[in-house]
Write a protein that binds this DNA or RNA. Structure first.
Length: 271
DNA sequence: AGATGTCCCTGGAAGC
DNA sequence: TGCTTCCAGGGACATC
């Protein structure tokens, strides 16, 4: 499933190649999570300026307006000068002078939304409430700790909410909490400053590492079956219920928090 | 306001 | 074997 690192790796894979391209046509398949929000024909003739990322959204900037692309959980993007005919799960395609950008998304949790600018109400609704970027300077241990002090729910759920820091999905939340020895059910405001700093470092480390690995494994990923992505190979706790902890051998536990599964080592994450 | 629960969707796995 | 049920995931939205 696309997490922040994969979205970033996807961005890097086509941003330079699509920059400067002129839009020829836009084709839609079945409805995605939200409607496009403009007449597809309107976009013909516009030029692609750049592709940026905010959280898990890709921002395809045009000379006028932009497209916000979210991969949901089963979405993937392809950009190529020629592609086979659109299949049943290809729900968005941007034909340009430099190639075709296609969204393949069987579960249709993804979305492509047009906004006239970043200040547009549609863009603000999607991006306005997002927390800081974890791999940028705005994410620092002290302000992270300060933000956690205001929250009483479980630290795992606060991480997932994405309004303090973006990009920590269900997998990385479990992994980062394991790395920092913190129990996922601990109230966010109960983290001491040093423990918050340790969690901060773990989040940065786990995401940075995934971006680095994503670069080399995305190729296998696209040719591989299903979701056995790079991360599964070396997860410390995620998806390892009942298996021995890689550090202490204690069986890994799975619990539910807010309808989501959380994995932890009850010995390494005592409090 | 924060916290919590629900919903969207489909393919694969598990259960009967 | 073939059916049904459950589960995965992000995030908007409703409700308390």
């Amino acid at each position: 499933m696309p997490e922040l690192p994969e979205v970033e790796v996807t961005r890097r894979s086509f941003a330079d190649r699509i920059a400067g391209a002129q839009v020829r046509a836009l084709q839609l398949g079945k409805p995605l999570r939200w409607p496009l929000g403009c007449d597809p024909a309107e976009l013909a003739g516009r030029q692609v300026r750049s592709v940026a990322r905010r959280g898990k959204y890709l921002l395809v900037h045009l000379d006028e307006g932009l497209l916000l692309v979210h991969l949901g959980m089963s979405g993937s993007l392809q950009f190529a000068t020629s592609l086979p005919p659109r299949g049943v799960h290809d729900h968005f395609e941007l034909q340009t002078s430099q190639g075709m950008l296609r969204l393949h998304d069987p579960r249709r949790f993804g979305a492509v939304v047009y906004a006239s600018s970043l200040d547009d109400a549609r863009a603000l609704k999607l991006l306005g409430g997002l927390g800081v970027e974890p791999l940028e300077a705005g994410f620092d241990p002290l302000s992270f700790h300060r933000a956690l002090q205001l929250r009483r729910s479980a630290i795992k759920q606060v991480l997932l909410a994405g309004d303090i820091v973006v990009g920590v999905g269900n997998i990385y939340a479990s992994e980062a909490l394991f790395m920092s020895g913190i129990r996922p059910t601990l109230r966010a405001d109960r983290l001491s400053k040093p423990r918050a700093a340790r969690l901060h470092a773990a989040i940065v480390q786990v995401l940075q590492r995934a971006v680095a690995l994503g670069g080399s494994t995305l190729r296998d990923f696209s040719s591989a079956e299903g979701q056995s992505g790079y991360f599964q190979l070396d997860a410390m706790v995620y998806g390892r219920e009942g298996l021995p902890c890689r550090v202490c051998g204690t069986p890994i536990q799975a619990i539910r928090q807010g309808q989501r599964s959380t994995f932890l080592c009850p010995a390494c994450q005592k409090k």
